Simulated assay, not measured.
Amino acid sequence: MKTATIPTDREIFFDRDHFIVSKTDLKGRITYVNRAFCKIAGFTEQELIGAPHSIIRHPDMPRAVFKFLWDRVLEGHEVFAYVKNMTKSGDFYWVFAHVTPSCDPAGNFLGFHSNRRAADRRVLSETIIPLYAALLKTESETPNAKQALAASYRQFTETVQSKARSYDELVFSL
């Protein structure tokens, strides 16, 4: 039986020239990882292939952000998002992720592809970390998980609308 990883307060940094790449099937199971992914996340390729991509999900990530990301990707859109991931040892690292659906020639989804690079520190400190903290606070203060997600998602979309015409406009203006 696998034990849960306990998050640390230790941040891992990686070179802005390195790209983390992964692919998943339709159920989110990892089908491909590059060497950078393994090195930064601290897992072997064998540990990652077949595992759910959530193996690197950090508990500091608001559920509302993942809801938005998956809603958009499942509509066939590409999404750019700031994500806090967790390593095998519980350390964390921030990425700027580009997530796209992988499709066959007829447009049917086959899986998902994600390229990630080091996140801009200024954007993190000025915008993303405070926003995610506010969303997590909303999620933790709402007693029912379904209502917590709805409240946090509403807060997320209201924040985006208050700052830009669309999420894409906001994320690329940061």
Rank of each mutant, 00 (worst) to 15 (best):
A4M: 09
A4D: 07
T5I: 14
I6T: 15
P7F: 11
T8Y: 10
D9N: 15
F13D: 04
F14R: 13
D15W: 04
R16W: 08
D17V: 02
H18K: 14
V21S: 08
S22N: 13
K23P: 07
G28N: 05
R29D: 08
R29V: 01
I30K: 01
T31D: 04
R35A: 15
A36G: 04
F37Y: 12
I40C: 03
I40N: 02
G42K: 10
P52T: 11
P52D: 12
P52Q: 11
I55V: 10
I56Y: 04
R57F: 01
M61H: 05
V65P: 02
F66V: 06
K67Y: 02
K67L: 01
F68K: 05
D71R: 09
R72Q: 12
E78H: 15
E78Y: 12
E78S: 15
V79F: 03
V79D: 02
V79G: 06
N85G: 02
M86W: 11
M86K: 10
T87Q: 03
D91P: 14
Y93N: 03
V95E: 06
T100D: 03
P101E: 07
P101C: 08
C103H: 15
P105W: 13
A106I: 10
A106D: 14
N108E: 13
L110A: 10
L110C: 14
G111F: 13
G111Y: 11
G111M: 08
S114D: 05
N115L: 15
A118Q: 13
A118Y: 13
D120A: 11
D120G: 08
R121N: 12
V123G: 13
T127N: 12
P130D: 08
L131P: 05
L131C: 07
Y132S: 00
L135D: 02
L136M: 11
K137W: 04
T138F: 00
E141N: 13
T142A: 03
P143I: 03
N144I: 07
N144W: 04
A145Q: 12
A145K: 13
K146H: 06
Q147P: 00
A148T: 01
A148F: 05
A150I: 07
A151W: 00
A151N: 04
R154K: 14
Q155T: 00
V160T: 03
V160I: 15
Q161Y: 07
K163M: 11
Y167P: 11
D168C: 01
V171P: 02
L174C: 07
